[in-house]
Design a protein around this nucleic acid. Structure first.
Lengths: 198, 198
DNA sequence: TGCTTTTAGGACTCAAAAGTCCTATATTAT
DNA sequence: ATAATATAGGACTTTTGAGTCCTAAAAGCA
């Protein structure tokens, strides 16, 4: 029923990740999705903009799922989960070989200014990640130093990962990302109090 | 002689910062720059692409200057200069009220995939910043712990600032940036050895 | 003053890309 | 079987935006 719709959504997600929103034409999407005739596309989506909006939403769910899997793995201690999450971001980037990366980084920067609706949606994604990380840090509260503010720290982690992803794309060098991830984990550990460990 | 040219360049820098490259038309630039007639524009620039390339170059010089002023202020200790630099990035963002921000964040994400030439230019800008910070960290080498790798650290700082700037834009909330800047400075201080201070 | 070059402007061409119309083939239900 | 509906496709219209052509007014120079 909606198989074709999903096909279009997938094709669009790929293309938007590769080339960005503005430089991806509806015809490109149609070709990649393997359908011909533009009205066919417009049968499923009201407009290109509507499609973009949906792609972002889906990407959000995808990334959130991916994050949640690691961040809520009850078998690990909170801070180990966080380290695992950071590693998974590095791995994801490496998978895509830098090119494309998370279809998120590019999109967010490009579309946020285009439309208030887009901006809010993207901000919501960021908020979702920060919130998950923050919850985790709250959970690990007694293992953290007193001056470690979970909300601020969570934002810091998200911002650093985002910036690092973008930098890695730009340099076409995945080792950049892993280097930054290393320092990020080091930073987190400096917010741990020594006492509890021993 | 080139007054008009500069006028166009300035107008373009503004617009590209606000709306990005793809969504800024040559006509927009012409209007903002206060000239009429497209050929007039093409008298000064070979193409829109050429203009974009120049704007990036100029923005680089601008940011580099701004950075260099703080980062090479001999009257301050290296690590204090670094803190000052971070503060100046926060201040710059606050000035522009989030909107627009450095015309750099948006541009880099959008244009990097457009053209290899753009990508390299932008990567060069990032490299420039990292290099300046790295030089500073090298200078402060004896005040740093042994496991602090200047190059890696410099990249970390640049990536975090870039990610933070983007996040602040997205949330339209400058306090996000200052919070992250605070943690960033805290992080840097954890790479300082205690001994020298006393 | 007359000649050349720079600066300026309007009207146009051309290409790309968003979106519509109208027709055809499956699919399903009665 | 047939009417109704979902799926598919091609050809068209319209808009937008990059880039060109051709003319006019200043500004320097002889």
């Amino acid at each position: 029923m909606t198989a074709r719709r999903l096909q279009i959504l997938d094709a669009a997600a790929e293309l938007l990740g590769e080339k960005g929103y503005a430089r991806t034409s509806v015809d490109d999407i149609i070709e990649r999705a393997g359908l011909s005739g533009k009205s066919h596309f417009y049968h499923y989506f009201k407009s290109k903009e509507e499609l973009g909006y949906e792609v972002i939403g889906r990407q959000f769910d995808l990334m959130a799922d991916r994050g949640a899997t690691v961040l809520r793995d009850e078998s690990l201690a909170p801070l180990d989960r966080l380290a695992g999450f950071i590693d998974s971001v590095v791995a994801l980037q490496a998978e895509n070989g830098g090119k494309g990366g998370s279809p998120f980084g590019t999109l967010s920067a490009e579309m946020a200014d285009k439309d208030e609706r887009f901006r809010l949606r993207i901000a919501q994604v960021f908020r979702g990640w920060s919130a998950q990380i923050q919850a985790l840090l709250d959970e690990a509260h007694d293992q953290l130093t007193d001056d470690a503010d979970p909300q601020r720290l969570a934002r810091f982690i998200v911002a650093t990962l985002e910036g690092a992803t973008q930098m890695a794309r730009l340099k076409r060098d995945p080792t950049v990302l892993s280097g930054i991830a290393l320092d990020l984990k080091r930073f987190i550990s400096t917010n741990q109090r020594r006492t509890e460990t021993a």
